[in-house]
């Protein structure tokens, strides 16, 4: 790891100041991606601003069917939250299968979506749940937030503070983990709210997380796995690497989508 300067913020405004004062600063939430990346010298921020002690970023609330999760909430906290388990068990289940127990004690929902790893689990849920991403500056619809691989709509001085969404009528997440890394090779989050079905796909698309609009259309007509029989997934938009070809991933997306609908 290259040398860096560590700063611990105790409030959101202090974090903003620390980030503004840094030459090339990075926000450090759980650090479960950033620190390994810095160790490999793939990232070399001059300064890191630790957000773990910012109380404004913590906590889960469910009120009037709206779920709000502070950006600094860990995967273990989301997985173990009775409120989330009751309002959106699919999201609690998703959180309980990110990484491993030690990673889940540190990694946060805000960090995951701000990083927008193409194989991260949370972004697919944010899209499918039609979530709103709250920052220190504004509110951004998930549809506008995830721009591309490792790319979001966040500005350099913007900090994710929370995510919120209306609890779905039913939802489920199914992923096919890489047998070695356990990252999703295809992960599909399906959420139904009233007559609307939204489908978020992670791990597979060559441009990162995306909504499968043809699947959404088919499922809005009939919310059953069979409704996806006639939908074809184009390998043209899929990742292709040593772990799996584009054709393989396209096939996996459909299989995971069917499993998710069956489980929802």
């Amino acid at each position: 790891m290259y040398a860096t300067n560590y700063h611990r913020a105790s409030s959101l405004s202090e974090a903003e100041q620390m980030l503004a004062a840094a030459e090339e600063g990075k926000l450090l939430s759980g650090g479960q991606t950033l620190i390994p990346t810095m160790k490999q010298r793939l990232a070399a921020p001059t300064d890191v601003v630790d957000l773990r002690h910012v109380a404004e970023l913590k906590g889960i609330s469910v009120s009037g069917g709206v779920v709000k999760i502070g950006a600094g909430t860990t995967h273990a906290e989301v997985a173990g939250s009775a409120d989330i388990q009751s309002a959106c068990p699919a999201l609690a289940g998703l959180a309980s299968h990110i990484g491993d127990p030690h990673v889940r004690h540190m990694g946060t929902i805000g960090g995951s979506i701000a990083n927008n790893d193409p194989a991260a689990d949370y972004p697919s849920a944010m899209l499918a749940l039609n979530a709103t991403i709250h920052t220190n500056k504004r509110e951004i619809a998930a549809d506008d937030f995830f721009v591309g691989m490792f790319e979001t709509a966040l500005g350099d001085d913007e900090i994710v503070t929370a995510v919120s969404f209306e609890a779905p009528d039913s939802a489920a997440y199914q992923k096919f983990p890489n047998p070695a890394s356990r990252y999703a090779m295809a992960g599909v989050f399906v959420a139904k709210k009233g007559g609307t079905v939204r489908v978020g796909v992670t791990g597979a698309g060559s441009d990162g997380v995306y909504r499968a609009s043809d699947m959404e259309q088919a499922l809005s007509g009939s919310f059953s796995p069979d409704a996806l029989d006639g939908v074809s997934v184009d390998p043209g938009g899929m990742l292709s690497d040593i772990h799996g070809t584009a054709e393989y991933r396209a096939h996996l997306v459909k299989v995971m989508a069917k499993r998710a609908v069956a489980a929802a």
Partner: peptide, 27 residues
């Protein structure tokens, strides 16, 4: 492994198991 995968470095911080190779001492 030094790549956050193997877990040989697991310790408890404030009662929770974490990978001590994936946390700064300052944190």
């Amino acid at each position: 492994c030094d790549t956050s995968q193997c877990g040989a470095c697991v310790v408890h911080v404030d009662g929770k198991a974490v990978k001590s190779c994936t946390m700064l001492a300052a944190q």
